[in-house]
Design a protein around this nucleic acid. Structure first.
Lengths: 195, 195, 195, 195
DNA sequence: CATGAATGAGCGTTCATTCAT
DNA sequence: AATGAATGAACGCTCATTCAT
């Protein structure tokens, strides 16, 4: 009897609580946040935590996957704005700023993921983000705003190492410097001495 | 365990062996490389390791200090080559390539240092590196090759996040992208719109 | 190592097993009895031991507390027997013999407690023991059997140093000698000069 | 050549320095005073320490032996004063007070000796002390001041557990209580109620 | 004979993971 | 399915003792 009811909802709710607690605890106490601490913060017992995520690595990978999904959605939203007349280079700039910001929030989680060798996890989200980003780049190149040689991999290469543990001012300066390497616009208007 | 029956190297030799083993093991197994593993890799007993470095933090700090000294020497050598007619922008490029290379070797060590709260260690070496770098930047700006707004902190900001765990080809590409943000030279010859 | 494959005793039973094992191991091997040894003797893993007692100090303090409670109960039982016509000096004698006996079992534990700086632990039990003992002394003094100047602190002072590592015969002799200092009774009938 | 000279004097001096340092360090830092600390305090290297005392147990035993010798000498001096008309019970009282005092100074050393299972060490000194004490007791019994049943072992039994870690006032009170058990003198002059 | 660097078993403690309830 | 007590390998570190110099 009762084929479709109650237990499901609880499990889903627990999964969410655990993921939130994990992100929070890792952000707070670093990669060494214990499974017991995370379970306690989530209001469940360790056993329950392990029912949802068989290893710590799996848990951290899931937290990262949430973030990856978030990034993919941001990339797709940016691409869609192109259809409504937005300029590609502006969308890319905005997107990268947003990603850098979000990554800063998740810095400790990323460190933990690397320490544990956690998989990039959500291949689907990555593919969606990659496709959207490729479209944005292509549009920017068509506009003449983005260097012809820039690829999606370039973006990944640069932003995978954003200084997300630095204060906002430093992050902003970093973004400026890096964007100058991607776009065709010079930063300072030059000094008139350029070779 | 030490197979060669310890031919009684003196303390200086042991210190070197331990530092090398520490760098190697941390690079190999991450910040969690055990003191016992490091000692074994160095061919000494744990006690010896602890005689030289009272805590793991001290050990990691010493490894970082070696690297910092190395960087400082490279920066000073580059500055000295200016006197013999070298072009500043070329020296900076070379220096950064070299540092990125060296940092790749020390990436995990840096992570470990941060995880353990190890001191920036060698203030003197840092000061020397900063001074030399400032001279190089100034010369590059006088030549018109480096953007007027570039500072030593910019260099630090960018290179503290070099993708040192990526393969050489990726690191080379990263360097290219980042240098474009520092120099007044355009990368691709542009699309006809570039400055 | 646990041969019987741990029939899943509940926490209360384990706590008792650990306390017993701790008392036994410390009595056997002195304050340096290892936590691993104690755990093995209790038939649990170290982790379980640490779940019940977060530090060695806590464990030793708990063992001492058990003993203190035991003493307090003996003292109160002795006092209650006064109401049924028992002679105070006899009850005191019995009580001290019993305590000396019990202390012999706990000698090494006390030493360990001091070595680790473990708290006097059970203030409540101590207060109860003190109150009962004071009543007994007062009754004994009213009977004229106990010297007027004897206090509870005197008893503590003497019995805190009972030769609990000596064989029973020596302990009995010690008790005789010490009681002579507390009671108004002479021991040997004297030499004709005694009061 | 030079058959009888130099090296001897150095060795003797070192032995003394080490024993003094050991007593001092153990008194200061408890039984856990390290061999390195003791060697450093003595101004020698560990190797030298180990040449004089093959194990820590041997070292502590030697420190205790020094103290035992001191006690033996005090006992013999007391006995000799009998010949000059001193009253035995007074000499015994003085002697025990002095021993208690000296033991208080060496409390930590004794604890260390017990922890290490160090031998009573100096059999000769013990024999001399025992003989002198026996003579004193016999004289006191002849005077009618000491209970007829008191033996040298009784004294050892009581004083081996003097509360040497207590403040002077407590130690004095303890002495008073214990002596009352040995002598035929009552402490308070009684209450007139004594049985 | 002194030195002090080297040894390595051992300690107290932690924590990802398992499993009886 | 959830619980949380139990597990035990592993960690950083100490220190009595050894031995090449």
């Amino acid at each position: 009897m009762a084929q479709t009811r109650a237990p499901r909802a609880d499990a889903v709710r627990n999964r969410k609580k655990i993921l939130d607690a994990a992100r929070e605890q890792i952000t707070l106490h670093g990669p060494d946040a214990g499974m017991d601490e995370i379970a306690a913060a989530a209001g469940v017992a360790v056993g329950t935590l392990y029912r949802h995520f068989p290893t710590k690595t799996d848990l951290v990978a899931a937290v990262v996957a949430e973030y990856t999904t978030h990034v993919a959605e941001a990339a797709e939203a940016a691409r869609e704005r192109l259809a409504t007349g937005a300029r590609a280079v502006d969308e890319i700039t905005d997107f990268l700023a947003r990603v850098t910001e979000a990554t800063a929030t998740n810095h400790a989680v990323k460190v933990a993921a690397r320490a544990l060798g956690a998989d990039p996890a959500d291949r689907d989200a990555e593919a969606r983000a990659g496709a959207a980003l490729a479209a944005l780049i292509q549009a920017g190149q068509a506009d003449g705003d983005i260097h012809q040689d820039v690829t999606v991999d370039d973006i990944y290469l640069l932003f995978s190492t954003a200084p997300t543990d630095q204060p906002p001012a430093a992050r902003a300066r970093w973004l400026t410097l890096v964007l100058t390497g991607l776009t065709t616009h010079t930063r300072t208007g030059g000094t008139g001495i350029a070779s």
